[in-house]
């Protein structure tokens, strides 16, 4: 399956989507959720926390394993998807939609450009497996 073309991607299998004025929504890719299997817990940061690009901002736990989440770009947390507290499996079912994880105010728009495009990410995943 090819990844949504409007998103940007990291080597850690997060996606970032520019929404409006300097804000991004961040989640994990379909490939990532598939590799993790049943997601049972997402450890979310607090609204107002700030991160630099590549900082650890949270944790995804599946039945089998635990995996850190890394910020694709720096900024301040505007919102976390608190629906994941009661329904973490949404990350499996709809990783690019209802399974989003955080909304961030972007400190530097150029950081998004440094991320992979959908076709680059698909090639990266293909090479990795």
């Amino acid at each position: 399956m090819s990844s949504p073309s409007e998103l940007r991607y990291t080597k850690e299998h997060e996606w970032a989507k520019l929404v409006g004025d300097g804000e991004v929504i961040i989640g994990i890719t379909d490939h990532a959720q598939d590799a993790l299997g049943d997601v049972v817990f997402v450890e979310l940061p607090e609204v107002g926390d700030s991160f630099d690009a590549e900082d650890k901002f949270g944790v995804v736990e599946s039945v089998k394993t635990v995996s850190d989440l890394y910020a694709p770009c720096g900024g301040e947390i505007l919102e976390v998807n608190s629906a994941l507290e009661d329904a973490p499996e949404t990350v499996n079912g709809d990783p690019y939609g209802e399974g989003w994880i955080i909304r961030l105010s972007l400190s530097d728009n150029a950081q998004l450009d440094a991320l992979m495009s959908a076709s680059e990410y698909d090639a990266f995943v293909a090479a990795e497996s």
């Binding site: 299997g37 049943d38 039945v63 089998k64 499996e89 499996n92």
Partner: peptide, 9 residues
């Protein structure tokens, strides 16, 4: 196989 096409659950 760690799992097939559904979930571990």
């Amino acid at each position: 196989p760690v799992r097939y096409t559904t979930t571990i659950q």
